[in-house]
Structures are given as C-alpha cells and as structure tokens.
Simulated scan of single mutants.
Amino acid sequence: MPEELPHPSLAEIRIERVLHALADPVRLHMVRELATLSEGVACGSIELPVSKSTRTHHLRTLREAGVVSVRPSGTARITSLRRADLDALYPGLLEGILNAPH
C-alpha cells in the first residue's frame, strides 16, 4: 500500500515554485488534463510520452510545489489538482495558464 506523501501547506506554497513547476511542457500537460477532471486520477492514467520514472519526477515536482495533491488509494496513488488552494493564493493565475494557447 502506498505511503502518504508530504505536501506543502497553503502557507508554504510559493509562486516561484508554482511557476517553475508549470514551466515544463510535460507538467503543464498533466495539469491541463487534471483540470478537465472532476475527481483525481491514478498517476498512470494520463497519457504522457515519458518513462515511468520521469512521470514520477514530474509528479513529485508538481506535488512539492503545491500544484497537485497525491493520496494513496489501495495500491494506487490518486493525483488531484489543488485548484482551490492555488485560486485562493494567486487569483486568476491557474485560469490564465489553463486558457493560454498551446
């Protein structure tokens, strides 16, 4: 069973880390996919052109920046976008990034 992973609290989320996490095209794709879902998804369910270890690295970067939350569920890890937290801290930032042309 997967263990609980550390996440930054709302007070610990910093804009520099959020922007760094969202600057990578693979991580931005992951966030865009998560934003279309009403619930979290298993880590591997988002189609990405990267290896499993690279996917893990990208998810860790997003989690440590406070962009996503990852929780254990059985033998899987469920990833969700921390939209409410990001909107509370940086109003309009996530919406602007999600609506930017790509």
Rank of each mutant, 00 (worst) to 15 (best):
L59A: 00
E64Q: 12
G92S: 09
P101G: 13
H102R: 15
E4V: 14
P25C: 06
L59Q: 00
N99I: 07
H29D: 04
H29V: 10
S51W: 00
H57R: 08
L48S: 02
L5K: 11
H58A: 00
A42V: 02
R82P: 06
E4Q: 13
T56M: 07
E4D: 13
S80R: 15
H102Q: 15
H29N: 12
A11H: 13
L22R: 02
Y90K: 04
S45K: 08
P91G: 03
P6M: 07
I78H: 01
A21N: 03
P101A: 15
A11G: 13
G66F: 02
G96E: 09
R71C: 04
R63L: 09
S45A: 09
P8R: 06
P101N: 14
H57S: 02
V50F: 01
A11I: 11
E39H: 14
V70A: 08
E33N: 07
R71F: 04
E12W: 06
L34S: 03
V67K: 04
E95Q: 14
I46M: 02
G74F: 05
R17Y: 12
L86E: 01
L86R: 06
G92A: 11
G44T: 07
G44M: 01
L59H: 01
T36C: 09
A88K: 12
P101Y: 12
I97A: 10
H57W: 07
L22C: 08
M1N: 11
L94E: 05
L48I: 00
Y90V: 09
P8N: 11
R71L: 10
G66Q: 03
I78K: 01
S73W: 14
L93A: 07
R17G: 08
E64C: 03
H102C: 12
T61D: 11
T75C: 09
P8K: 06
G66D: 08
P2V: 00
E39L: 13
T79N: 01
I13S: 06
V67W: 03
D24E: 14
R77L: 11
L48K: 03
L10S: 13
R63E: 07
Y90L: 08
A88Y: 10
A11W: 11
L22M: 11
H7Y: 04
S69A: 13
G40N: 07
Y90Q: 05
P72Q: 04
V31E: 00
E3C: 11
I13A: 04
L19M: 13
E39W: 13
P2I: 00
S53Y: 02
A84Y: 09
K52L: 08
V41N: 00
L93W: 07
S51F: 01
P49R: 08
V31A: 05
C43K: 14
P2Q: 03
V70G: 01
E47D: 14
I97C: 09
A42H: 06
R71N: 09
R32D: 03
R55F: 00
V26K: 07
V50T: 04
C43Y: 03
P6Q: 05
S73K: 15
P25V: 01
M1D: 10
P6V: 09
P8G: 10
G92P: 06
C43H: 10
G96Q: 05
G40T: 08
V26F: 07
P72L: 04
H29S: 13
D87G: 03
E3R: 14
